[in-house]
């Protein structure tokens, strides 16, 4: 893990009055790999594919594995683990005395390119990320195969989407006026105008994805990494 020096920034959905402060924390350099995840379920057999309760994962959980403890033929041991639900990702981090990053923490680190902690104003930064969104099957690539950013963190962009602890705080469910009392900032026409950084379409897509997730979904393109508070 490496240290991420905290700071204040305006996230995608905020206005200036809604700046977000992030404390110092440590973050995994890479997303969790198939290899590390295998070691984990050896110790926590309740998360084996044949054991997991439907409450905690849908039918896509580890769906491409050959068996409970065997990767699929085309899966690299060093590729990021995907097809895991939020419940399992959360428990993985808890088990190691870590936790999943919050959206604010993850986005804070994701603003960085190779040289700058906040590269969101650069046209090249946005183009790079959107370029990845068009590339197919990057989840088969090994961890560490994308760029190392300002914080010495790899693969924030270009490999897989990642779970966050509070992904369910993005309040854009099906019919936004119906079931949530205040979520106008991210949705409908007015929402996109309220978004602070219109350039950051890539981030908008990430928020939209989070808003559409359910904790038991196990998607092929969705992995995770852990963070740790400093005072521990």
């Amino acid at each position: 893990m490496v240290l991420i020096k905290g700071g204040t920034y305006t996230p995608l959905y905020g206005s200036d009055s809604l700046k977000v402060s992030v404390q110092d924390f440590k973050m995994d350099v890479y997303p969790v790999s198939n290899k590390l995840f295998l070691e984990f379920i050896k110790k926590k057999p309740k998360w084996k594919r044949s054991n997991i309760k439907k409450l905690f994962a849908d039918k896509n959980y580890l769906i491409n594995w050959k068996s409970d403890m065997e990767l699929g033929d085309n899966q690299s041991i060093n590729a990021p683990i995907t097809n895991v639900s939020w419940f399992v990702a959360k428990d993985y981090c808890d088990y190691l005395g870590k936790r999943l990053p919050t959206i604010d923490e993850w986005e804070y680190v994701a603003m960085a390119n190779e040289d700058l902690p906040d590269a969101r104003q650069l046209k090249t930064y946005n183009e790079q990320i959107l370029g990845w969104y068009e590339k197919p099957k990057t989840f088969n690539n090994d961890i560490g195969s994308t760029f190392k950013n300002y914080w010495d963190i790899y693969d924030m962009h270009g490999l897989v989407w990642e779970w966050s602890l509070d992904f369910n705080s993005v309040l854009i469910s099906g019919e936004s006026r119906k079931d949530v009392d205040d979520d106008s900032k991210l949705f409908c026409g007015s929402a996109a105008i309220g978004v602070t950084d219109l350039m950051n379409y890539a981030a908008f897509m990430r928020y939209a994805l989070r808003g559409s997730l359910n904790a038991k979904y196990a998607l092929k393109t969705l992995g995770f990494r852990c963070v740790k508070d400093l005072n521990q």
Binding site: L55, W86, F87, K90, D94, R99, L165, D166, N168, S169, V170, L171, S173, D179, V180, D181, D182, D183, G211, N214, A215, K216
Partner: peptide, 28 residues
């Protein structure tokens, strides 16, 4: 905090803390 987040996820309830005393949340 973690137990509540987990429970909300089982119910597919979404919520976000807006200020120390205020939350946005789904009404389910």
């Amino acid at each position: 905090e973690s137990g509540v987040r987990e429970f909300a996820n089982v119910l597919a309830v979404k919520y976000k803390q807006i200020s120390p005393l205020d939350f946005s949340h789904s009404n389910i």
